[in-house]
Structures are given as C-alpha cells and as structure tokens.
Amino acid sequence: MATTESSSVELTGSSAGYGVDNPAPVIEPPRARTARTPKSTRTNFELYGWLFMRLSGIVLVVLVIGHLLIQLVLDGGVSKIGFAFVAGRWASPFWMAWDLIMLWLAMLHGANGLRTIINDYAERDGTRFWLKMLLWTATVFTILLGTLVIFTFDPNIR
C-alpha cells in the first residue's frame, strides 16, 4: 500500500513571522451570536411584515398583470398612451382606486423586500441604519408624490 504525496502548496509563511507565541488573527464571521446578543424584542413586526409580503403579492399579481394588459397589450398597445388616455382613465374612481392601491402595495412590498435584503447583507450597524433611512425616505417620497398626483390630477391643465 504505497502512498505518494504531492503537496502543491508549502505552508511556510516565513515572511509573516507567525509562530506558536504569535498566531495569525483568525477571520471572524460577521455578527456572530454571543451570550450578549440582544434578547427578544417581543413585537410582531416581522410576523406582520412576512404576512404582508404574501398577501400583497397575491393582490399585486392581479393588479400589475391587469395594468400591463391595459397599458401595453389591449386596444392598440403602448401607442395609445397619452395625456388624453390617462385623463380618461382617471375620470373614473375605479381606475383611481386601482392605481392608488397598486402604488401603495407595490411600493411597500418592494421597500419591505429591500429592507430584508439590507438586513441580510449590511454587516455594520451604521451601514444598515443609513441604507434603511435612504430606503424609507425614497419610499415615503414616491408614495406621497404618487398619491398627490392621483388625487389632484387636473385634466384641464394647460
């Protein structure tokens, strides 16, 4: 049972000068759990966030596919879209409600998804905080602006 050894890499880090009394630093994983890890926050925020993603997702499938069909496929497709087309649709409270619900659900759904991605990938608490501040600012701005436009749209503007 002859065995042959071929070590392609020599483990001699002589330049670094590490030894038994001077070991190299080990690489800690980000945010390891310790006994001092903050204990339960006792809120149901994550539960509601998880539920919201599922429920809003179901509603958005209907709203968004309907929206895409009306805007891009049916009745002449994208070429029909113009000021008159939008004004005509928003004359009806039904389409105003459709667009308003779609705006709110899509923005909150996307923002919550990005929030979980930031929670997953941001290592430092500071990075985490500022990325979320940026996210919430952008979300609130877009939702408020869209809501304002839907409710104050004036078809006679010139």
Binding site: S8, V9, L11, G13, A16, Y18, G19, P23, A24, P25
Partner: peptide, 12 residues
C-alpha cells in the same frame, strides 16, 4: 495561524 495568516489548498 501559527504558520501563516493565509489559508491555502493542499493536494494529497
């Protein structure tokens, strides 16, 4: 860590 700070692949 007592030899090098770098991890590396070694074939046997």
């Amino acid at each position: 860590p007592e030899v090098s700070a770098e991890a590396s692949w070694e074939d046997f």
